[in-house]
């Protein structure tokens, strides 16, 4: 097997909690990302799922080095993104791009669509001569399914789905190898969401893109991903091939998460053996000892409080982080 395109190793991001304005005093630490490892191969889609506050969006920012990591490395083609001079990083930005969640705030309202999509060329002047920008922008708009004659319009003149396409066109301008999609379809209406999902799949097969697809919507992740990683409180608790994780989840959190998704099929509504979790996600400023999930877990024992489970292959046949891992079928 060839080396993965992106390798994330021991990634940690802690935010200090401070008090005071002039004399800041650190009173705690928010462990947003607390030791995350994963690989992303060329042309594949890795879905990263988890609930709000689990740290998945921070992972997105760390992979692009939009935030500095507290610890750990992100290798792109063997080079550590978090340990390279800014000049080199700027070059590397051409290879990894991001599509953000909110189609309303991710486009500068004072710029025309043409200027927005051409901005990558203006930033990386060596990519394309100025005369070619307009043609390239129009090609990009056409590629994402927009009318190329709309370059002089402003973002607010487009619907949410169309704006998201503009954001995708901007991300594609520099011909990247990796696209980080941070909740890229979550803000869209279902009928439009499907259009954008299909577009992303189309682009992947045309351009050979690798996606790090971050989302809270499990059905969307299931639909688009090759492999899936489940995050809880700053850690990956289970990772594997899509069908393995969805059909034969080993970690109790994954099982609860999957079983909680309401099925859009009323006939199945009753027969669902839904695992309803008690309580709330603990604060990442004060995570439980040992296994982070133990406070809501029905299997928890003393061992879970004392010993942190490693992410390794257990009963489920793919890596999970539960001492008492066992397969339970929750999706029918």
């Amino acid at each position: 097997m060839t080396e993965p395109l992106v390798q994330v190793r021991g990634l940690v991001k802690h935010y200090p909690l401070t008090r005071g304005i002039v004399f800041k005093k650190q009173v705690g630490t928010v462990r947003a990302v607390d030791g995350v490892d994963f690989d992303l191969a060329s042309g594949e889609t890795l879905g990263l799922v988890g609930e709000s506050g689990c740290g998945k969006s921070t992972v997105a920012k760390l992979v692009l080095r939009l935030e500095e990591a507290t610890e750990g490395q992100v290798f792109f083609e063997g080079e550590d993104i978090h340990d390279m001079p800014h000049g080199r990083l700027r070059e590397l930005r051409r290879q990894i791009q991001i599509v953000l969640q909110d189609p309303y705030s991710s486009l500068n309202p004072r710029m025309t669509v043409g200027d927005i999509v051409a901005e990558p060329f203006a930033v990386h002047r060596s990519v394309a001569p100025r005369e070619s920008w307009r043609r390239r922008v129009q090609d990009l708009l056409e590629r994402v399914g927009l009318d190329p004659d709309h370059v002089n319009r402003y973002p607010h003149q487009f619907s949410g789905g169309q704006r998201q396409r503009i954001g995708i066109a901007r991300a594609l301008a520099l011909d990247p190898q990796v696209l980080v999609c941070d909740e890229a379809v979550s803000a869209l209406d279902v009928s439009v969401q499907a259009q954008v999902i299909n577009l992303l799949r189309q682009l992947q097969s045309d351009l050979g893109l690798a996606y790090l697809f971050i989302a809270h919507d499990l059905s969307v992740v299931r639909h688009i991903s090759d492999r899936v990683a489940v995050m809880y409180l700053g850690k990956i608790v289970e990772v594997g091939e899509r069908s393995d994780v969805f059909r034969e989840p080993g970690h109790p959190y994954t099982q609860a998460l999957l079983s909680a998704v309401p099925s859009p099929d009323p006939r199945k509504a009753g027969e669902n053996d839904r695992i309803v979790l008690e309580g709330d996600v603990p604060s990442p400023a004060d995570p439980p000892s040992g296994c982070h999930f133990r406070t809501r877990c029905w299997k928890a024992t003393e061992r879970c409080a004392a010993e942190e489970p490693a992410l390794e292959v257990r009963a489920a046949g793919h890596p999970d982080a539960c001492h008492f891992s066992e397969i339970r079928h929750v999706v029918r």
Binding site: S191, Q193, L218, S219, R222, H223, L258, P264, R332
Partner: peptide, 22 residues
């Protein structure tokens, strides 16, 4: 609408969206 939502119990490769926007 029913055709355009991805489902947990279904591995359809292609979603069938509604064309256009509301």
């Amino acid at each position: 609408l029913i055709d355009s939502i991805p489902r947990m119990d279904d591995d359809r490769e292609e979603l069938v969206p509604i064309a256009g926007a509301p």
